[in-house]
Amino acid sequence: MDELFGIPLPLLFGQLLLGLINGAFYAMLSLGLAVIFGLLNVINFTHGAQFMMGAFAAWMLLNWFGVNYWFALILVPIIIGATGIVLEKLMISRLYKLDHLYGLLLTFGIGLVIEGVFRNEFGSSGLPYRIPPELSGAWDLGFMFMPVYRGWVVVFAAAVCLATWLVIEKTRLGANLRAATENPALVQAFGINVPRMVTLTYGAGVALAALGGVLAAPIYSVNPQMGSNLIIVVFAVVVIGGMGSILGSVITGFGLGIIEGLTKVFYPEASATVIFVIMIIVLLARPAGLFGRTA
């Protein structure tokens, strides 16, 4: 049993694992987008740049300050999340009364500025980030070798997604958040500081993107374009899943990652486009998205 449909098993499982890892990033990023969109009604175009900032922040912490991966995992989301809070306070909050499209244009512009600054500073070629020693090496699973770090990314990302879901669905804070998504004016009337909640939610969404960046740093090379290339695919993922359900965006993210991985095995030419094609099919069959409620 070394082959399946004429495909060597190690290759198949290797691509499946890569697909799962991509799926983990899709899931984390679309989760952040969905949380932000739910409360702010802004689609955060800066998300890709913030993901990239997360990876660079981890690199800077390691190479400039000698802070290792584990501390970066905690510090980077806090730092980048704080920049997100400043951004929301200074700029994004001015646009809530206008057409939602202005929020999109503003965050797109901010993303361009961030990406351009990093490209000036670090060039377009990637910087390497070493896998932390605790997670280097590989396990022999019998049918394939599994690099420890890759397994860690999948497990950790799944845990983060689950934790986010628990916070939103099972805690009092999450209940307030969901209520404010439905009807901010009423929630404010109950004495909850909705503007502060909006600011913190944006910060949390950005922190999720930055955490994804730290996770990605040892896998992909750290470069200024890493976010913008990813974010367009994540937009397609968001359209496919619909932004109505947290669990829905997580499942869609992982699922599409796996489909993309399998496409690489069976029909590599289509691997870059398969998610967009799925998006078209979903739009034709279920315009609101797989888990969406409203059109």
Binding site: L105, L106, G109, G111, L112, V113, V117
Partner: peptide
Amino acid sequence: TVIQGGIF
């Protein structure tokens, strides 16, 4: 790119 983003 930075300037264009700034104009945006």
